[in-house]
């Protein structure tokens, strides 16, 4: 495959950190309701969105992921009472860090998707896939290969 072809066939790869209680259940519901979305996302289950260490996100970018979504329960609905408030603060900080190092901060996003919001999960995945596709592959943070 030539370089040009590889570029033409490029598909974004997006990592979704989904909390076990809300977003993972929401993604399950999207499946149960047969709501189709682009196959570019990979859901990684964590107990709480507050478990997501910014280190995980940076590592994913270094290994060449094109976008990262952290998704959890709506504020006030956290299964662990306050976990998603930490997520919210870290998300804002992370976006500023990404901006500082010259990466489009929109490559890293956070969303609140509850267990009953299958359609919202579908919508978010569609939107983010298109956004990341428009940005093109992540070259800036990727380790030299």
């Amino acid at each position: 495959m030539s370089v040009k072809e590889a570029q033409a066939n490029w598909e974004p790869k997006i990592l979704v950190f989904a909390c076990n209680w809300c977003t993972y259940a929401g993604a399950d519901l999207a499946g149960l309701s047969r709501l189709q979305y682009p196959p570019n996302v990979r859901v990684l289950r964590v107990p709480c969105s507050g478990r997501v260490n910014p280190q995980f996100v940076i590592r994913a970018f270094q290994r060449g992921i094109d976008g990262v979504l952290v998704a959890g329960c709506h504020p006030g609905d956290c299964h662990y009472v306050t976990g998603n408030y930490f997520t919210r603060r870290r998300y804002l900080l992370m976006q500023r860090l990404l901006q500082y190092v010259g990466v489009d901060p929109e490559r890293f996003q956070a969303r609140w998707i509850s267990g009953s919001e299958g359609p919202k999960f579908q919508q978010v995945v569609k939107e983010i896939t298109e956004q990341i596709r428009a940005m093109g592959p992540n070259r800036k943070l990727r380790d030299a290969q």
Partner: peptide
């Protein structure tokens, strides 16, 4: 929930079954 593991600056706290190493291995 694992909130403490992220707050820990020296990575001394870890959450069993969802350890830093496990999640990074998945990534």
């Amino acid at each position: 929930c694992g909130a403490c593991t992220v707050a820990c600056r020296s990575a001394a706290l870890n959450l069993k079954h969802f350890t830093n190493e496990q999640i990074l291995a998945e990534v």
